[in-house]
Simulated scan of single mutants.
Amino acid sequence: MQKKMEPMKIPELTTMLINPYNHQPLHITETHNLEDVSGNIIPVVEGIPDFLALEKVDGLNKKYQRLYDRISPFNDITERLVSFFIDLHRLRSEWMADVEIEPGYKVLETSVGTGWNIRVLPEFAEYYGLDISSGMLRQASRNMAKWNRSMQLFRGNAEYLPFRDHTFDCVFHVGGINFFNNRERAIAEMIRVARPGSRIVIIDETAEHIRKQYRKIPFVKSYFSSGDADEARAVAPIALVPPDMQEVAVKLLEKGSMYQLSFRTV
């Protein structure tokens, strides 16, 4: 299990954290939780600040939070089984090829899941991961210890990131944004917490992949309907990128099963 966040480490973390719902700064309490100046408490559970304690999750976010919590115990088993037939390590390395990381960079992955993308990235950066699923975060914590990797985890909503403006040198996302409540807000938040000139990379499944794969799996197919709204969401959300962003590009990965949207902040 990831080491429990020591009280002496929390003050270091508060220099980069805010209450994402009112943008107030945070301080450590006597019970080693986090608190804003209005008295809102963010509990720290096994080293993971839980910002969802301040939010009632609803809509699509609630629907897919339940899915990810439900499948989290089986996620890594599935990863290993699929690896017998597909070189997932190679695939993830290819997906991460456009994620710009330099020594000393602060790197954020939203919807970090169980942390497998971090495993293929260089160890010379500082990694931070946020997810809406407590089940996924628990497994990510175990994986970090197993792989001897370091990453600070947060439970939260990617549409309300708990970080100060311009905190990260690199922000990326793999899987899940298709069915966020508010994709435009999530992208705006990635931009807000990224430093000027940072590259942002967003990867998710295409509609074709969802039709061919997820809608055939008994355990999860009920979460992926065939409605027009779902079809329209499973495309690169290039229209949601602010017009002043630079180097905006879209490409397909892995024979069209995934899309990648990337751009550079200004």
Rank of each mutant, 00 (worst) to 15 (best):
78 T>N: 10
75 N>G: 06
32 H>I: 00
124 F>V: 12
32 H>W: 06
21 Y>K: 04
46 E>V: 00
49 P>C: 08
100 E>H: 13
41 I>T: 06
11 P>V: 05
93 S>Q: 12
32 H>M: 02
6 E>A: 12
121 L>D: 01
63 K>H: 08
60 L>M: 12
68 Y>L: 03
83 S>F: 10
73 P>A: 04
123 E>N: 11
32 H>T: 01
113 G>H: 07
66 R>E: 14
40 N>I: 02
65 Q>I: 05
93 S>G: 15
78 T>L: 13
107 V>F: 06
83 S>Q: 13
46 E>I: 00
104 G>C: 11
118 I>D: 05
89 H>E: 15
73 P>Q: 02
121 L>S: 01
9 K>L: 04
121 L>N: 02
89 H>L: 12
8 M>F: 11
33 N>M: 08
113 G>F: 04
35 E>Q: 15
71 I>C: 05
109 E>R: 10
111 S>V: 07
81 L>K: 13
35 E>F: 00
107 V>D: 02
46 E>D: 13
62 K>T: 09
55 E>Y: 08
21 Y>Q: 07
114 T>M: 12
114 T>G: 02
71 I>V: 15
61 N>S: 09
102 E>V: 07
64 Y>T: 04
85 F>E: 10
63 K>E: 07
121 L>F: 03
95 W>D: 05
39 G>I: 07
47 G>S: 06
26 L>E: 01
13 L>H: 04
87 D>N: 15
42 I>L: 03
73 P>V: 08
27 H>S: 13
60 L>V: 04
90 R>N: 14
110 T>Q: 09
94 E>M: 14
111 S>W: 03
41 I>C: 03
12 E>A: 11
115 G>I: 04
50 D>Q: 09
45 V>A: 00
6 E>G: 03
46 E>S: 05
65 Q>S: 04
39 G>L: 01
18 I>G: 00
34 L>C: 08
39 G>M: 02
30 E>C: 00
73 P>M: 05
25 P>R: 02
57 V>F: 08
62 K>L: 15
80 R>Y: 14
125 A>I: 10
9 K>Y: 03
109 E>M: 14
5 M>N: 00
88 L>S: 06
33 N>I: 02
93 S>M: 10
16 M>P: 01
81 L>W: 13
86 I>H: 14
51 F>L: 06
54 L>E: 01
24 Q>P: 08
123 E>H: 11
24 Q>M: 14
59 G>D: 14
96 M>S: 12
36 D>W: 07
65 Q>A: 04
97 A>Q: 15
17 L>K: 05
29 T>W: 01
42 I>A: 00
107 V>G: 02
32 H>K: 05
